[in-house]
Amino acid sequence: NNDALSPAIRRLLAEHNLDASAIKGTGVGGRLTREDVEKWLAKA
């Protein structure tokens, strides 16, 4: 759900042209964290 994304995470996803639904969030309530996105980028 994009409503649950912080502005910083939205920007990070946009910079790398990523789809938030492709990344499993580990934050509160399954929210994406910066670490989630960075780990996903490291694997890609």
Rank of each mutant, 00 (worst) to 15 (best):
D3F: 03
D3Y: 02
D3Q: 11
D3P: 10
D3R: 07
D3M: 10
A4R: 12
A4N: 12
L5V: 09
L5Q: 06
S6Q: 06
P7W: 03
P7Y: 06
P7H: 11
P7L: 12
A8I: 08
A8N: 05
I9S: 01
I9V: 12
I9R: 01
I9L: 11
R10W: 07
R10N: 10
R10Q: 15
R10E: 15
R10V: 15
R11M: 10
R11F: 14
L12Q: 05
L13N: 00
L13T: 00
A14T: 07
E15A: 14
E15P: 00
H16C: 07
H16D: 00
N17M: 08
N17Y: 06
N17S: 08
L18E: 02
D19E: 09
D19L: 08
D19G: 05
A20L: 08
A20H: 07
A20E: 07
S21M: 09
S21P: 06
A22V: 12
A22Q: 14
A22E: 11
A22H: 10
I23G: 01
I23H: 01
I23Y: 02
I23A: 03
K24L: 13
K24P: 15
K24N: 09
G25E: 01
T26L: 05
T26F: 04
T26Q: 04
T26E: 03
G27D: 03
G27L: 04
V28G: 06
V28W: 08
V28L: 13
V28K: 12
V28H: 12
G29H: 07
G29Q: 06
G29S: 06
G30N: 05
G30E: 04
R31E: 12
R31Q: 12
R31M: 12
R31I: 12
L32T: 04
L32G: 00
T33Q: 04
T33R: 05
T33L: 08
R34N: 10
R34L: 15
E35L: 10
E35N: 08
D36W: 02
D36F: 01
V37H: 00
V37Q: 00
V37Y: 02
E38V: 11
K39R: 14
K39Q: 13
K39I: 11
W40I: 11
W40Q: 07
W40A: 15
L41E: 01
A42H: 09
A42C: 04
A42E: 11
A42M: 10
A42W: 08
A44V: 13
A44L: 15
A44S: 12
A44C: 08
A44E: 11
A44K: 08
A44P: 10
A44R: 09
